[in-house]
Computed example of a mutant assay.
Amino acid sequence: IGLQFIVLTLTYIFDQQQNKLIEKIETQNTKLKLSQEEIEAQNEELTQSQEELSSKRNLVESQNLALIEAGKIIEQKNQELVNKNDELEIEIEKRTKELVEYTQQLEQFAFISSHNLRAPIARILGLGNLLEISHDPEDEAQIKKNLIVSAQELDRVVKDLNTILEIKNSNHQIAHTVRFEEELKLLLVGLEKDLNDSNTSLTFDFSEAPLIKTIRPYLDSILINLISNAIKYRDFERRPEIKIKTSQVGEFICLSVSDNGIGLNLKLVQKKIFTIYSRFHTHVEGKGLGLYLVKAQAEALGGKVEVESKEGEGTIFTVFLKSKE
């Protein structure tokens, strides 16, 4: 009985401890399950956070790329603005220079024109006064002839002024395609007498640049003035030779007119050669307007004119012309 009691008691104690252990294990399992659920929830939150972070990182990278591209565009635009500013400064400097030159030309023209107008007007007034007090028919006839000469001189000065003003306001002129050879042959009809009387040899070569789109009257005037000058200022000790040639130089068509005439000392006349009413040889008649017109018309056509010359050898005028679109 005693042994049986002990066995039963031990069995009871074992069962109690086993039940407590099972309860403890179940409690721990429950805690572990809760912890696992919490961990899974946290993992899910972490996963979502990572996805959000990844999405935001992609968005940031996309925005960074957009910012980099925008920066490149801004840099490009800034460079374009710098280039535009540089171009504007160059254009302003060019326009300012042109305005200064134009103002100087106007001042020079106003001064010389007023001088040239004053002389014939003074003669006309003086002759008019003489005519009032004269009673001799022969004197009156001579006075009237002198009045006509003075009036013609006055008319010439006014016409020169009109010619120059027309050049300065040439924007309304229409450009035409002109073939140099055909145009020159037409102009030579009017110069035939001067060429024959002076026994001048004239040759031309337009093979490199046969045509140009330009204002025809200006081209004609340039050719006529340069050819006429070559004939007028020829060397009487040798047969005059005039050579006309065209060539393409960059954006310009170059028209050169060379002669074997008496030439010029450019060291002395370089600054005055294209000024209005400037003359450097007095053994022939002239107004000193031709080369001024050549320069003014070349510039009106978007070009320029250059000169090379040696006394006793001849002169080369090179006119740079832009072909108008």
Rank of each mutant, 00 (worst) to 15 (best):
E51Q: 10
N83V: 11
E51F: 10
E75W: 01
L65Y: 10
S49M: 04
Q76R: 00
K33G: 04
Q79E: 15
A41Q: 02
A70R: 00
R57S: 14
S55W: 09
E38M: 12
S54F: 11
L81K: 01
L81S: 11
E44D: 03
V60M: 03
Q42P: 01
E52V: 13
Q36H: 13
E51P: 00
L67R: 01
Q48A: 12
E45K: 12
E61S: 12
A41K: 01
S55T: 12
S49E: 04
E80D: 15
L32Q: 02
N58D: 07
L53I: 05
S49R: 12
A66Q: 02
E44R: 14
G71Y: 06
E80G: 03
I68G: 08
K33W: 08
E52T: 14
E45R: 12
E69D: 15
K56A: 11
E40H: 04
V82A: 15
E38W: 08
K77R: 02
K77I: 14
E37W: 05
I74H: 04
K77F: 08
A66H: 03
K33A: 12
E51D: 13
L32G: 01
L53P: 00
G71T: 08
S35H: 09
E69C: 02
Q63Y: 11
L65E: 13
E80P: 00
Q76E: 15
V82G: 07
E61P: 01
Q36M: 06
Q76S: 15
S35D: 02
I74M: 03
I74Y: 10
I73E: 12
Q79I: 10
L34F: 14
E45S: 07
L46G: 01
S54Q: 09
A66K: 02
K56Y: 06
N64D: 03
L59I: 13
I39R: 00
Q76Y: 12
Q36D: 11
Q36Y: 06
Q79R: 03
T47Y: 09
S62M: 02
S49T: 14
T47W: 02
L65N: 14
E61W: 07
Q48R: 10
E37I: 14
S54R: 03
N43S: 02
S55E: 13
A66V: 07
E75S: 12
L34R: 14
K77M: 04
Q79F: 15
Q76T: 15
E40M: 06
L46V: 05
